[in-house]
Amino acid sequence: MESFRVLETPGHADGHLSFFREKDGVLIIGDVATNMNLLTTFTGLHLPPSMFTTNQDVNINSLKKLKALDPQIICFGHGSVLVNKNKKFETFVDKLTI
């Protein structure tokens, strides 16, 4: 049984952690990003709202670090699981600027 690797992903909150299992590419990112609009609940990738994020620039850097893992399945604190077949997550992160 392969364990999840613990990754420091600050920005949304100090001490925020994400978890990655390399054997199948499962990434649990919590609140570094959401897969839903928090107002409408429509599915789609978004940054967490600035008012609930300690440092958005650091958060974006954490997302760039997670992108490099080539995740296949991404689990969020808010929104449905994303099966990342079309590299939707990477496209989203590539559009983010600091």
Rank of each mutant, 00 (worst) to 15 (best):
S3T: 11
S3A: 13
F4E: 04
R5N: 13
R5T: 15
V6M: 10
V6W: 02
V6D: 11
T9C: 08
T9N: 05
A13L: 14
A13I: 03
G15C: 07
G15F: 09
G15A: 08
H16T: 01
S18I: 08
S18F: 06
S18C: 05
F20T: 03
E22A: 12
E22I: 00
K23P: 00
K23H: 10
G25V: 10
L27R: 05
L27N: 05
I29E: 00
G30T: 04
D31P: 00
V32E: 00
V32N: 14
A33F: 11
N35G: 08
N35R: 08
N35K: 06
M36A: 15
N37F: 00
L38K: 07
T41S: 10
T41H: 12
G44L: 06
G44H: 07
H46N: 14
H46Y: 11
P48W: 13
P48V: 06
M51I: 12
T54H: 13
N55P: 02
Q56N: 06
V58D: 05
V58P: 00
N59S: 05
I60V: 11
I60E: 08
K64E: 14
K64T: 07
K65G: 02
K65T: 15
L66S: 04
K67G: 00
D70L: 02
D70A: 11
D70Y: 01
P71E: 10
Q72N: 14
G77K: 02
H78Y: 12
H78P: 01
G79R: 08
G79P: 02
G79A: 10
G79F: 07
S80G: 13
S80A: 14
V81T: 15
V83K: 09
N84F: 01
N84Y: 02
K85D: 12
K87F: 12
K87E: 13
K87L: 07
K88Y: 00
F89Q: 07
F89L: 09
E90A: 15
E90V: 07
T91L: 11
F92A: 04
F92R: 04
K95M: 12
T97L: 01
